[in-house]
Design a protein around this nucleic acid. Structure first.
Lengths: 227, 227, 227, 227
DNA sequence: TATGAATGAGTATTCATTCAT
DNA sequence: AATGAATGAATACTCATTCAT
């Protein structure tokens, strides 16, 4: 037995008034604060509204529910990642520099979007809709890593690596590690990590995997000697 | 949502009779099934009990609450990781083989403990008690990676890498990637990944970072050319 | 963005234990009391639970929501109406007596199921699921009235009446009037109506429409003389 | 949910300018559309305002609250019913024709005021203020039916009928049946009912109850043969 | 030990009503 | 008069946890 389903829009189509957009942004920003503080699952709608200095009800003027809010947050996250891409020419000119710059971009982007990343980890695997967005975000990054690996393979480097899988692993490393280091909760007994050190380290890892150093000969065949 | 549980002396000392221990194990195993299927946050006590073929009430005969159940799962997880460590001599004899074997161990351990890993990702960052266990688990793995990096540095390899940070990143890569690939939800459009391929790929990455190949000269200094 | 839909039953399939059935019945009965007192729309789950001497939560052990509870109430209502039907032979033997007895049955049934009728009127037209049950209930009664009218038409009576429509109107009269008189709220300035008087009156109306009196000649043709 | 509204002197005396009255009418009309579509309880102020092409706020310039809006609708309803009454002479001249014409009036009036009737059914029994209006509306119709029955009884017809009760039942039949047939939701599998057929049928019923046909002898005494 | 019915605190969500502009 | 963003009280619903049997 179900109640009649109103065939009319649930939220009265927020007209993009000045004030309206400001409130929406305030809620989004408040949500990021609360998520960063309490975690995604623990973030209550009421807390978010309060953090924004608004009443509970107003939340539903702008979002259908918490998942919808998170979707909005992820949208910005994704858009930012897309904007981050260095130009292809840059890669050809000085691959190492381009990679390093891309990593620096990653590092700072994942700082900005720490709450979003927290939400992805907390709910991504259990919520199909979130999972789909996360896939989209990863696909981009993985594709670029795989492209770079194949380029190197054309030069006789990165021998024996499955480009797609290696890219997935590299992307995972960046995603998780940037998140982890920014969170300051899991490892780091000695306080926050300096940006330069973090990027240097990540570059040290990625550069070795991609065999970016041209002064060293390529590594030999499949590096798995015995099983 | 799991929270810190003050250790209170409840549950009238379940004398671990045959049947009792069997029930406890049944509940633990059921929890793993339900968590893998629905995620940790979505796993209800009632579901776990039903999956175990038991009544809800009996859950509390064996566990103080949901966090306590997860703590019990993590305990086994950690114990298994400890048992996994290859003997130090093995490393000195054939480092590459030892690393490869350690990675293969990682891979299969993270398959077995997929539900636990899911729980860590979902709640670890928001629940101090869980976070502490996760830290302990990671610390072990990171220490070993850092040790290996320093060993390599003594041989003139892995120049310019911060051993601790690089180890943290490598561990994160393994942790997240094994979890991810086993979950089969995030990347993988083409079905599950063969064990050998997965381990080969991970080894390919780790071996490059550690510069395990003795036939190639060490990479030059800090590999970050320009900032 | 939607949350994962648990593929498992929402309510853990109430096993028909003794106590369980008693509680379910208590809730149903409490609901009838509260609906009769406050109306269907005003009946809060919490009130129903309290009236049953139970906590809120238990309601959801037995019913998915208020509509589901109402569906359960209507089921009994319908079953009772079905059980009410006089045997066909009775009709043939003494039609007038059989009709009168059927009306008396109606009258007392609609007293018993006053809360259900209230719910039908309040929500029936706006809730498709409820509407469907109401249709089923009416269809039965209407079919029987229409059958009787056609029987009379075979005897040259009830000339010019559309059997289906007339049956619909007669059924509506009974339904609404029994409800109305039992409610004691709308007309009646002089207190409750005696059962006999009510049934006599209803019979007086129905008998005239069906032209049950055999001592009077049938009414002439279509009784609408001028338009 | 509508409730009794204490008459408080709010709304700073809307001087009924041209535009003002137009807005008020637009809101009333919009309310009728929305109620007919969604039911009274489901009709939200916001929906009504949107349907009228106005902002939510303006609703409260013209009405104190939702009950007040419904009261305004019922006022018009009642006024129309009053205006409907055929002149007494008409009855004496040709009773059958007058009754038929009254029924036709009923039929078309209840089409026009379908939303109002829906509101009465949905809230009338639970809201004392609405109930009172409904009583007033019914009283008029019942009084006229009772008057007619008594007139017939003076002629030796309608023997054994309690005039008041029979009138209440007849009025209920008309009220409910006109509403029901106009709604097109409960019975009618074969589409809307033609006006003439509807009025013919209702007349067929009422005329039989009132024994309007002068060519047939009056029915004998109390028609309830055995109890 | 086991059962499963009962509890109730914790949250999400809706929508009539207010109010600054 | 009109606008539409904001308010918050009222309710529904969930699920970890308790407890009588």
């Amino acid at each position: 037995m179900t109640t009649v389903t109103p065939p009319r829009p649930r939220r009265p189509a927020v007209t993009p008034g000045r004030k309206a957009e400001a409130t929406r942004q305030a809620l989004l920003e408040a949500a990021r604060v609360v998520i960063a503080r309490d975690g995604f699952a623990n973030a209550r709608i009421a807390d978010i509204a309060r953090q924004a200095g608004k009443s509970v009800g107003v939340f539903y003027t702008y979002f259908d529910d918490k998942p919808a809010l998170f979707a909005a947050l992820l949208e910005t996250f994704h858009a930012d990642l897309v904007a981050l891409t260095p130009s292809p020419p840059a890669y050809e000119e000085d691959t190492a520099a381009a990679v390093r710059s891309a990593l620096a971009g990653f590092w700072s982007t994942y700082r900005r979007f720490h709450p979003e990343m927290l939400g992805l980890l907390e709910t991504g695997l259990a919520d199909p809709a979130v999972l789909e967005v996360w896939r989209k975000i990863r696909r981009r990054g993985i594709r670029r890593f795989a492209f770079r690996i194949r380029k190197q393979q054309e030069k006789g480097r990165c021998r024996g690596l499955d480009a797609e899988l290696a890219a997935s692993a590299l992307h995972g490393m960046l995603e998780f590690t940037c998140f982890n280091w920014h969170s300051g909760r899991l490892d780091q007994p000695e306080g926050p990590i300096a940006d330069e050190l973090a990027v240097d380290t990540l570059y040290g890892l990625v550069a070795r995997v991609l065999e970016l150093d041209d002064t060293t000969p390529p590594l030999p065949g499949p590096p798995a000697p015995l099983r």
